[in-house]
Design a protein around this nucleic acid. Structure first.
Length: 474
DNA sequence: TAGCTCGTTGGACAA
DNA sequence: TTTGTCCAACGAGCT
């Protein structure tokens, strides 16, 4: 390999400099060409959603600035582009951190093979999971299907997550003249709806760490109970940073662990365990994003109701807690976890609309849209996944609102047309006396929707459909 | 090995 | 008003 002195670090879902195993390896070998490739060609029907593209634009911008403007950007087929760079420079190796989406696993295996054929070393590292999905398995070698034993027996008994690596002291970066400008990636929408997301987020590696430490200082001591209240600052909101790899789960895990050993911290770490579980499921069951894990659900009589789907997407179902959630999603690119369950249950159980419709909408709107987490969670809500919510667990959007947003602050923030309605009727405005509605300036059907389904009738309908499913199998 | 207990997130209803 | 029970069924893990 005489004369070949340069390595490529291929950035993917690891848009950070610290705790980056592949980058550390590259830097240790001398000059590095840092590369990011927007590979839309290999994705097929899973193109990144609009909100994710917006986040990615800003995350690449932040990473590029952190590297003194030396990030090389490309758009197109990753294999072709990597080979092209290798042909124009004396490249001895390409290093990257692994991704686990099925299409990426196949593509990366092909690329590894192709590079090796050209005499270029290709090596991948673990930069985004605490435990590799193939490492955690039951004693008989088959994959876990239930979270608790997966986490307690599989993960916690395996070797502890490695300590985070420090940021390389010096990065001897090489610019490639064929690289594109950030705007050439066309990640921002032509109609600038993304402007409304801006006030809610600070994007990049440094803001991700600020967010983590703010949460550890102010939120984690209330996590176990407080995480259920969407108005409270007791969730980490690290999900988009983790998805794009601006921070690694190892950094989060170890930082949380240094804050002590109490049930709140254990609970927060177990949520990282859920992230691991989703990746484990996606790896073991690559059809997770598209097919019911329980085959009996293939017979389920989902309703096709475009009008109802549209009302749900726009936050016009007439159920204030559902509408608040859907509007939070649209306005901020995010939705609180408790509310995700409520709107998910409403779509799947009250409207009887296929979970995949909900999954796709979330995919397009969430800044933290993540194939593993999103599809595993939707299958959980629908009850068709492994270790899923039982079919009779149907969230009541009225009582859930009263229970988890008792002062109505969250709901009033995103459904301002109801802000003058007293707490008593906030989650069921149709039950308010005429005078109360009048005084609050609410005209049902005009200023705010009438409920698009009756919650108890649709609950009974769902229970019946789900129980028929059981009869069909027997 | 068979039997037993437990399982992230709920709701309705009866007592 | 609050509390207990039931709404299935099965995989995982323990004894």
């Amino acid at each position: 390999m005489l004369g070949r002195a340069i390595t490529i670090h291929w950035f993917r879902q690891d848009l950070r400099l610290s705790d980056n195993p592949a980058l550390t390896k590259s830097v240790s070998e001398g000059k590095v060409i840092p590369v990011y490739i927007l590979d839309d060609e290999n994705v097929r029907n899973r193109a990144m959603g609009g909100a994710s593209r917006w986040w990615l634009h800003h995350s690449l911008d932040a990473l590029n600035k952190a590297m003194g403007g030396n990030l090389n950007l490309y758009r197109g087929n990753a294999e072709t582009i990597l080979k092209d760079i290798a042909n124009r420079h004396s490249i001895k190796a390409v290093y990257w951190n692994r991704c686990y989406e099925p299409w990426r696993i196949l593509r990366d295996a092909r690329i590894k093979e192709a590079l090796k054929k050209e005499g270029i070393e290709a090596q991948s590292f673990n930069g985004s999971l605490l435990w590799e999905p193939w490492e955690i398995k039951k004693d008989d070698g088959t994959p876990y299907r239930v979270f608790t034993p997966f986490y307690r027996k599989g993960c916690l008994n395996a070797s502890a997550p490695r300590k985070p690596l420090i940021k390389p002291k010096q990065l001897d970066a090489v610019r490639d003249e064929s690289a594109l400008a950030l705007d050439d990636l066309n990640l921002l929408p032509s109609i600038r709806w993304d402007k409304q997301l801006e006030p809610y987020w600070k994007i990049g590696e440094e803001p991700a760490h600020d967010r983590l430490y703010q949460f550890l200082e102010e939120g984690i001591t209330h996590y176990k109970q407080g995480r259920d209240f969407p108005d409270k600052p007791y969730v980490s909101r690290l999900s988009p940073h983790l998805h794009f790899g601006e921070i690694s789960p190892h950094q989060v895990w170890h930082a949380a662990r240094t804050y002590g050993d109490d049930p709140n911290i254990d609970h927060f770490c177990s949520e990282l365990g859920w992230r691991e579980f989703s990746y484990h499921l996606l790896y073991r069951f690559p059809e997770l994003p598209n097919n019911n894990l329980q085959a009996k659900f293939d017979q389920f009589p989902w309703r096709s109701d475009k009008e109802a789907l549209k009302c749900w997407q726009r936050g016009q179902t007439g159920y204030p807690i559902v509408d608040a959630g859907m509007r939070e999603l649209w306005q901020t690119g995010y939705m609180h976890n408790r509310i995700r369950m409520i709107v998910g249950s409403f779509l799947v159980k009250n409207l009887l609309i296929d979970w995949r419709q909900g999954e796709r909408w979330f995919w397009d709107c969430l800044v933290d849209a993540d194939l593993a987490n999103n599809s595993a969670s939707w299958q959980w809500v629908a009850g068709c996944g492994v270790d899923a919510a039982p079919y009779f667990r149907i969230f009541n959007p009225i009582t859930q609102g009263q229970k988890f947003d008792p002062e109505g602050k969250y709901t009033r923030r995103f459904v301002p047309e109801l802000s003058n309605l007293p707490d008593k009727y906030l989650f069921c405005p149709w039950e308010a006396p005429k005078l109360v509605l009048e005084q609050a300036g609410v005209i049902l059907g005009k200023t705010y929707s009438e409920p698009i389904v009756d919650v108890s009738c649709s609950r009974a309908r769902a229970l019946e459909s789900f129980s028929r499913l059981k009869e069909n199998v027997e």
